[in-house]
Design a protein around this nucleic acid. Structure first.
Lengths: 152, 152
DNA sequence: CGCCGATCATTCGCGTGCAAACGAGCAGCT
DNA sequence: AGCTGCTCGTTTGCACGCGAATGATCGGCG
């Protein structure tokens, strides 16, 4: 019997049937990379990264919001949102002010420039969304959005 | 007519019907983040990041490979794979040697420690794969893998 | 009132991810 | 031989992303 003649434990055994290309993490990383590339190219004139766009848009939508709260809505931890907000305020796209009720928090609100920029940025984001999904049929686009939402 | 009474251009117009949560980039970023968290937790004992795991696995599979070639297979650009390989070689999981035929390239190969580590790492990666897909039904898992492959 | 756990924001360190620029080496072509 | 264009690998700079630690503040509870 050929099977019993195999070594009991080999690296090949553990690797059998495993391919990185079939790993969900690999596919997610690749798809995300591709979207960032598409988004960045389309957003060239506005110079907003995907995370900066998300943070600024949420701020414009909500008007006044705490930094950590904004981070939770935008799926960024406190350490990350801190840097994003710092870069956006440095560019004059949002403003930070103190909160009279809670001296720990910094309340954020968009500036005129931020509101003005977000309109054209949304248009670019729509195009990036379409471009990233362009390899898929319309029904498939709905599917992948729904499935990713469940995985979130 | 109410419509003609509206302002010609407002930020609200551009934002109408747009929600970051419905943007493919946002969903990809969130799903990817979640997978990295799951993978990292499961790989705690091996101390391999997803990219390090991918690079090491590919090296073990192929035996001898050029750094840039490895990067292409693992979906990392030259600047990124350089850092990944540097950390893996520093930990003694792979080795770099010169190529007699082409003095530009550095040929990589796994060490004994690298081969030994990859076996248990693959088991952890399988678990992370299952855990990341756990919110989905079996048929949906195949769907999302197939769709992400098309988007790659 | 004082204490204590939770929350807010910041900082450090490490690891991706990529554009851009660079020097070295290879191959083909004249 | 020289030239040209390509590839290989590296470095720098910037931007996420997060674990962990820190300090300030808030809230509730005794």
């Amino acid at each position: 019997m050929a099977i019993s003649a195999w070594p009991t434990e080999t690296a090949a055994d553990a690797l059998a049937g495993f391919s990185v290309e079939d790993h969900i993490g690999f596919l997610l990383r690749r798809a995300h990379q591709r979207h960032v590339a598409i988004f960045t190219a389309g957003m060239a004139h506005a110079e907003l990264t995907p995370t900066q766009f998300t943070a600024l848009l949420k701020t414009v939508e909500l008007g006044r919001i705490t930094q950590n709260h904004l981070g939770r809505l935008a799926a960024m931890d406190p350490a990350t949102i801190q840097g994003v907000v710092r870069r956006l305020t440095a560019r004059g796209l949002m403003r930070r002010g103190p909160d009279k009720m809670d001296r720990r928090t910094a309340v954020l609100e968009p500036t005129e420039a931020g509101v003005a920029l977000i309109a054209s940025a949304v248009a670019c984001a729509r195009k990036a969304h379409e471009a990233a999904l362009s390899p898929l049929a319309p029904a498939e686009r709905d599917q992948v959005m729904s499935l990713l939402r469940k995985m979130g």
